[in-house]
Nucleic acid binder design. Structure first.
Lengths: 131, 131
DNA sequence: TATTGTTATACTCTATAACTATA
DNA sequence: TATAGTTATAGAGTATAACAATA
């Protein structure tokens, strides 16, 4: 987590901001409240998060109805989200490559087994595709 | 991490406090500054940590020389450290048991490979036995 | 001069309560 | 009445700077 934090710092992103950008990128127009539920972030904490990314020109808000607002990535938001995702993917590949070849195939099944064991109560799912 | 946090909350311990208790238990009389280096905690942040555990009667301090103090677990500190460790071990066993039997043997080699890949720069080691 | 413990301080993350306005 | 967004606030976790006492 510490090294991932450093990777994201290269893009001036905290890990929560990264997650939010990826979620919005995969779900343009998503409501703040939906993003809160998916990422398990309190509504109150989403406000400065979205405001910060908006101030940086990475996302924009458009009213859906009188109380809801849909958030989408701007052009530069999409560009940053793409670059950051590539960096995170490279980081993860580095981790995988540190594992002996014959064990690499077992990583995903093991992680999925632990994950499903953990998700007994809350259950979040893959979080990327919220229709 | 979230579930482990909840496990430790049953003993009114934060995960940093748990780690410190285990470290002291394995290294009675360790200096605060040594504990800081092993656990990678700032000296300034160790002060309220140790004070809190001392106020709860879990550890005691004895002067080594004019400026250093050795910290050790009290009787109740050892008892709590033991119970908390058992709970954490049980928690970890639960995670392992969620993994299909034929994959369980690969978990430790995979984790060690990732760990040694991560420890390229800082390197902390097992942190339990600091001679 | 370097180390140990300490104080003060600040920033981030997270959590709760309460408010406004809308559905 | 429930929901969406907001504000204020409080508690942890963590970081730096500075200080006194000691090695």
């Amino acid at each position: 987590m510490s090294r991932l934090h450093d990777e994201l710092a290269n893009f001036s992103l905290r890990h929560t901001e990264f997650s939010l950008l990826q979620l919005i990128g995969a779900n343009p127009g998503i409501k703040q409240s939906e993003a809160c539920r998916v990422l398990e972030i309190q509504r109150a904490n989403m406000v400065p998060l979205v405001a910060g990314l908006e101030d940086r020109g990475l996302l924009s808000r458009k009213p859906i109805d009188g109380r809801s607002q849909g958030i989408s990535l701007t052009r530069s938001g999409r560009a940053l989200a793409k670059k950051a995702l590539a960096a995170v993917a490279a980081f993860e590949n580095g981790l995988i490559n540190a594992i002996p070849k014959h064990l690499q195939q077992h990583v995903e099944p093991i992680l999925l087994a632990i994950w499903s064991g953990c998700a007994v109560d809350g259950d979040v799912g893959t979080a990327a595709s919220t229709s």
